[in-house]
Amino acid sequence: MLTDSASAELVKYAANGFLAMKLSYVNAVAELCERLGADILDVTEGMSYDRRIGREFLNPGPGWGGSCLPKDTQALLQVADAADFEFRLMRASIDTNTRQRQRMVDKIRLAVTGNRNGSLTRTRVALLGLTFKAGTNDLRDSPALMIAALLRQAGAELVGFDPALPTAISYPELEGIELVADAYAAVAQADAAVVLTEWPEFRTLDWPRIAAAMGTPRVIDTRNLLDRDVLTRAGLTWTGVGRRQPSDTTVLAAQ
């Protein structure tokens, strides 16, 4: 594609901005699912059959991060501001992403204390996954670390494991997090285990062993990575994002 320099610059910013908006949108829809008793997996599957939407970037999670989306969305706002254009849609997408991190902390509070405003002081929280996505050791703008910072501010004691982060290396970004060598060490005596990165190997962990090792056997799965039935049979309580609980009724069907 041959174009002018201004258009070429905007191609990259606009593409990553669109992906960020799509992720913020699906995270907002996931919250709506929780309030209505719907299930985000069914909703996104139905959406994906529309070829204009597709299947990519329709997985809810703890928020988007990494080396590109945060940088390029901010750059797009700066370009818009310089052109005296108020890009409200992009700003709202960024605000939604920031709110998503706090929403995950509230979900953890509720799971641990039974109250969205409950105290996490001196609770032990195991963080499974710290990089911004699976398949990388990149910690830049990782939503896992943003959530960890909020949990630390709330008084929680944090222990973490990530397959891409050897414990022999010191990571300044992990200040306040005890990094351990495997998931089993992370969950020992924990009040909750929180899945923050979608590493596929987490699916094959020995979940009965984890349930026995934890102080309280509960998992908050911010990536909807794990099989709820597998964890339930292992004796753990599982909480996902935008997922209908087995006891929920479908509000929309009754209306």
Rank of each mutant, 00 (worst) to 15 (best):
R122Q: 14
R122Y: 08
R122D: 15
T123R: 15
R124W: 00
R124L: 13
R124A: 15
V125A: 00
A126S: 09
A126C: 03
A126G: 03
A126T: 12
A126N: 03
A126P: 07
L127E: 02
L127N: 03
L127Q: 12
L128P: 01
G129H: 03
G129P: 04
G129E: 01
G129W: 04
L130K: 07
L130M: 05
T131D: 11
T131K: 06
K133W: 09
A134E: 15
A134T: 12
A134D: 14
T136I: 10
T136Y: 14
N137G: 14
N137T: 09
D138N: 12
L139H: 12
R140A: 08
R140L: 04
R140V: 08
D141C: 00
D141E: 15
S142N: 13
S142T: 10
P143K: 02
A144K: 09
A144Y: 06
A144G: 06
L145F: 05
L145C: 05
I147Y: 06
A148N: 09
A148Q: 05
A148E: 09
A148H: 10
A149D: 15
A149E: 15
A149V: 06
A149K: 14
L150H: 06
L150P: 09
L151Y: 11
R152T: 08
R152C: 02
Q153T: 13
Q153Y: 10
A154F: 04
G155M: 01
G155F: 10
A156Y: 09
A156R: 12
E157L: 12
L158I: 05
L158E: 01
L158K: 12
L158S: 08
V159H: 13
V159K: 10
V159C: 11
V159G: 05
G160W: 12
F161W: 08
D162L: 04
D162R: 00
D162C: 00
A164T: 11
A164Q: 14
A164N: 14
A164H: 13
A164V: 04
A164E: 15
P166Q: 10
P166H: 11
T167I: 13
A168H: 14
A168L: 13
